[in-house]
Write a protein that binds this DNA or RNA. Structure first.
Lengths: 333, 333
DNA sequence: TTGTAAGCGTTATCAT
DNA sequence: ATGATAACGCTTACAA
């Protein structure tokens, strides 16, 4: 069942069939309808490979993420896939894990599949050592690369970011205004986004004339119990803090559990702010105040930008989106 | 940069190049090494389309799911993608939503992309009206279809399921043994899996000589607050229950919040059992006893079965995996 | 072991 | 508006 069968049955040439297939205006209505009817009768579907061979593209975007089971990334994948499909693009997904080697391998694989663009979802793709990102810059020579919540300078690379730094700056400011003086900061990763959040927190302290204390800043695995246990340990060691800010809701849930375990009352005795406004935020009692990084808007913007790139337009190499502070019950403001 | 360039530079025919590309044994080591070297020097990558045209396949599996942002499905996608890649297959992802029309459309799209098989992840794909599933049965005539946690009889269709019914049966049994007599059951969907869970609960009641009371069984959106509010409403209306079982951890978290709101103590006054043993299970205080549906094993088995199908082996049309009951602190046992 | 040549099913460039 | 025909880059008999 191919284009020849259709052309034969319709009594036209394959060129004509191809034309109606591709919506060419140079076909008479009569012929078009005839061909369409035959296609329908035969249940004809064009062969994507042959098509790809001729066109060099197949309307497919590669999406890379470190781990699709992470709630934040899972949402990103969802919005990206849906958005792309709205423009007629399929998505091929690669979960790379965190090793640089794998990331390189998968990016190469995606390129060899001739995808039309590659979206790097999540801030985990940009390595601290600039040279380690060369493989991305190089790939961008041949294919558009879009970063969701990551930043890398380069030709043919477009970044869409949440303004994490301002968000944590504002949130920490409100914490201070509500009376907190010893704000503990918990983060999971030193990624671009992770560092932005941390800096915002530090900005706020500085802006209010408070010292940035190293003994109030800790890295922690992205895990509820790990966060709880870390806080418990710090508590036991005698460290005092009257608020906890985290780079992820998961850690904030851990903070709530820490408070329960030590019978500290939230928010009177301890304020907590999470990040991502994920579904974890409403799991706890009291429910988490959290910063919404607006992943949906981030993904939508990424796709808009990509379409600009495809249309040869002048796409912004960097778009920033403001976060929302969602107030719930773990803060006094 | 194509096979001709390589053949020219290596001074061999394209057939020879193709042979080393495909690991044919009929190539002398000397020639093979030469060609390999040239490929490397030229940075040659075979064109997937041309290859697909010739072979009719491109080592790609279509994965359909209703919503990749659902934690359960997000994990499934992760394990499937990783597992398939281990066998050299790429994954193309389709999030279909719940409308039958979309499901049909995407399955058709995947077929037109000539994927080598289609995995339907999650129990949402099987419609109650048998006829509504005909499109799947038909597709299976031409391409292997694998169901993860869904069941449909049919040629070329393989199902891997968790034994939900036994799991809830056992869990409800333990609840009863620990003294509960009025076990409320909350479910989200009437899918195959959803009904299995419900039946297991009913089995347990029947087995212990307890009545199956309709006023203890409710459908509820998969949402923490919706579950909490529903229970609050039932509580206010005077309904008594001393345990809550749910078809998803999300609802169980809602039950914990309901207990907090009404100051009922867990598990003394109210026992709770969730389902999926997701990360939600450790978010609450006390932490949730939950049934682990072993999604990782489910996915691994699905892929194993698929490989059997690909190798022309006799693949089981139905494989069942036992669930695990993970005891935490919301039950007395 | 290697090469030649015929597909594979499209798209695109010519003519007409 | 339509038709022939040459790419596109690979796989795979069939020959040698």
């Amino acid at each position: 069942m191919n284009i020849y069968d259709v052309s034969k049955k319709a009594g036209v040439s394959i060129a004509t069939v191809s034309r109606v297939l591709n919506g060419s205006p140079n076909v008479s209505d009569r012929t078009r309808n005839l061909v369409l009817k035959v296609m329908d009768e035969l249940g004809y579907t064009p062969n994507v490979f042959a098509r790809g061979l001729g066109l060099g593209t197949i309307q497919t975007i590669g999406i890379m993420c470190s781990d699709s089971s992470d709630p934040y990334l899972a949402h990103a994948i969802y919005y990206l896939e849906q958005g792309l499909r709205g423009y007629g693009y399929d998505s091929i997904l690669c979960c790379t894990g965190n090793s640089l080697e794998n990331k390189q391998k998968y990016l190469e694989l995606l390129r060899s599949k001739k995808v039309d663009a590659i979206i790097l979802a999540g801030s985990k793709f940009i390595e601290p050592k600039l040279r380690d990102n060369d493989y991305i810059t190089e790939a961008a020579q041949e294919i558009p690369i879009m970063l969701v919540n990551g930043f890398l300078e380069g030709n043919n690379i477009c970044c869409t970011l949440c303004d994490d730094r301002s968000a944590t700056h504002e949130a920490a400011g409100k914490l201070i205004a509500s009376g907190c003086r010893s704000i503990l900061y918990l983060y999971t990763s030193r990624s671009y986004s992770g560092m932005g959040k941390l800096h915002g927190y530090q900005d706020a302290l500085g802006g209010c004339g408070l010292p940035v204390r190293k003994d109030l800043i800790y890295q922690c695995p992205k895990d509820v119990l790990a966060a709880r246990d870390l806080l418990l340990k710090l508590h036991t060691s005698g460290l005092f803090f009257d608020a906890v800010m985290t780079s992820d809701d998961t850690l904030a849930v851990g903070a709530v559990k820490y408070a329960h375990a030590t019978r500290r009352s939230i928010p009177d005795d301890l304020s907590i702010i999470g990040y991502n406004n994920s579904s974890y935020a409403v799991c706890t009692d009291p429910e988490l105040t959290s910063i919404d990084s607006r992943i949906e808007a981030l993904c939508a913007t990424t796709i808009n930008t990509l379409m600009i790139v495809f249309n040869g337009g002048n796409a912004p190499s960097r778009t920033t989106i403001a976060a929302d502070l969602i107030k719930r019950a773990t803060t006094k403001f």
